[in-house]
Nucleic acid binder design. Sequence first.
DNA 1: CAGCAGGATGGGAGCGCTCCCAAACTTGAT
DNA 2: ATCAAGTTTGGGAGCGCTCCCATCCTGCTG
Lengths: 345, 345
Amino acid sequence: MGMGRRGAGRNGRPTLEQVAARAGVGRGTVSRVINGSPRVSDRTRTVVQQAIADLGYVPHRAARALAANRADAVALVVPETEGRLFNDPYFSVIIRGISAVLADADMQLLLTLIRSPKERQRFAEYAAGNRVDGVLLVSLHGEDPLPEQLTEFGIPGVMNGRRSAAETFPYVDVDNVGGAQLAVEHLIGRGRSTVATITGSLDMYGARSRLDGYREGLRAAGRPDDEDLVHYGDYSEESGYNGMRELLRRRPDLDAVFCASDLMAAGARQALREAGRSVPDDVALVGFDDSAIARHMDPPLTSVRQPIEEMGRAMARALLVEINDAGDGPARQVLPTELMRRASS
Amino acid sequence: MGMGRRGAGRNGRPTLEQVAARAGVGRGTVSRVINGSPRVSDRTRTVVQQAIADLGYVPHRAARALAANRADAVALVVPETEGRLFNDPYFSVIIRGISAVLADADMQLLLTLIRSPKERQRFAEYAAGNRVDGVLLVSLHGEDPLPEQLTEFGIPGVMNGRRSAAETFPYVDVDNVGGAQLAVEHLIGRGRSTVATITGSLDMYGARSRLDGYREGLRAAGRPDDEDLVHYGDYSEESGYNGMRELLRRRPDLDAVFCASDLMAAGARQALREAGRSVPDDVALVGFDDSAIARHMDPPLTSVRQPIEEMGRAMARALLVEINDAGDGPARQVLPTELMRRASS
DNA sequence: CAGCAGGATGGGAGCGCTCCCAAACTTGAT
DNA sequence: ATCAAGTTTGGGAGCGCTCCCATCCTGCTG
């Protein structure tokens, strides 16, 4: 029994102990070098690093996690039910941003789709058990309780977007109000006089913000804010189509429409086509999201772009700060939007 | 010292030991129950399960991984350089499929984007160190060495697509040949006489297969295979545009085009428009991928659909089998494609 | 009723690492 | 040379779990 540890670990990979032996130092010292502790003399550090290189040593993550009570991993949670993400490249792009930052910090990215109450439960257990150091929330539903649960368990988290103007959970969002306003001002600047809008689902804060921005834009230009010009949609292509028909019926004189999503703009464009109205001559159209669809519409759709990748990066950075410092109160960031002008306006 | 273990783990979470105490059994027994070992009496099992429920016990992943020398995690690797994934919903959808299967197996999904040689190196180290039980490869570049590296280290893996007809690594692919053939036959069935094609980058096996399918379709209908009707593109929208112009110049008489991607079809459609040819009256158009773009083109594009989510599921299942059984030689699966008929043909 | 096979059970050892305390060594001042 | 005050280092303990062997029950058989 107890033949002592020698040789490599069970995977044939070298262990800390072997690095220590090779460098002629103790385990603790090697650990210090690996974790960048300053309490190591330069000479020792060099020797140890050499031994690490010679052996091709790579720390064993699970062992480290167990001993240090960290996970070195972050979960990205996507409630699939609300997954509008799964249409745009939105998802891919935000992941790219997140992943870039996390890779630099040598943290793993765990992907968790929650598509049923059972999975939600399972995830809550996970998170609660310190299996991850922090959680990134994307595309949250209206009153999703996940953020509160995390807070309760003391798990750092950052969400994408807000649930309300008074959001208390750390978040990274885009300037929806500003973007919508930009769109409206652009339309007015192009000489349009009667600017309508088709909104997203108003139970989502983002949709409300875009509507606010629309109104703000009108106000800034001294235009009246006519309730007739607002159609309440739900972000779907169909609601864009129906909304456009309805608006056309109510206000045949409209000459511009701001849609709160590209998808709705696509629906609206179809309705316009059927009604024999040309874009942009009769009616100018502006969307939101600047998705692939926008670029491929005919004519290409002017749209409000969100800095999605940058959002991903900002979220990851904010989470890392929360994990390490745990200070300064919740991070709140609002990134700017930008108007991509194309032929539809 | 050594006040013995009592109370909960450092996270305030119950440990195996506490469950054991509460159930009045030993650690080993609880472990057996959790891992579904048959060597436990029914009564004991019930008692233990009750204790687990009472305490809300959740196994500590890192501890388990360390002790059992498994990771309970699978890495999904996306070489970003080749990331055509990042345009279509392809990425999101395949992840959905993968994630569904993995969640059921209670495995974690680790996402790894490789966008630089440095990151590639880092990943290789990871994989080599049993940090994951298996690897899923998506969107691999022509002669990517990753599969061979994995084989060498004895790490199970499954890739999406093939690199050649003689692929030796386990894979799940779609029937590109069949899909292209379907498209051509459909075109001919609609009375088209001169069917051209714009190919993807021929250094990719999928693109070659689609070209093969195109030729096969012509042959099956007894049509000549005219080299003039083939334009070599690269999957980009621009190459679709240029290809279409070129084809129109060479063969003004063509009345149908099969494009190896929707994106190229979008480019081709633009060229057609500029040339004053209507779709589908003058020229019928069929794409490949059935992406969002296809549905939003004007007219909506007929396209070959790949069962992407099912591919994700198949990959995950195949990997799980490899991890557990390690038998039966490499998995090879080719899923069927389907033609989505729309107004463009 | 002893004896035995086989299933159920308890718990020691150990996975590879971090934490932290005590030991060993420096350095500089006296 | 001596000692106080650092600095650097070694290594025991322990993280929570699985593995596996020794032990303890069963229920039968002879």
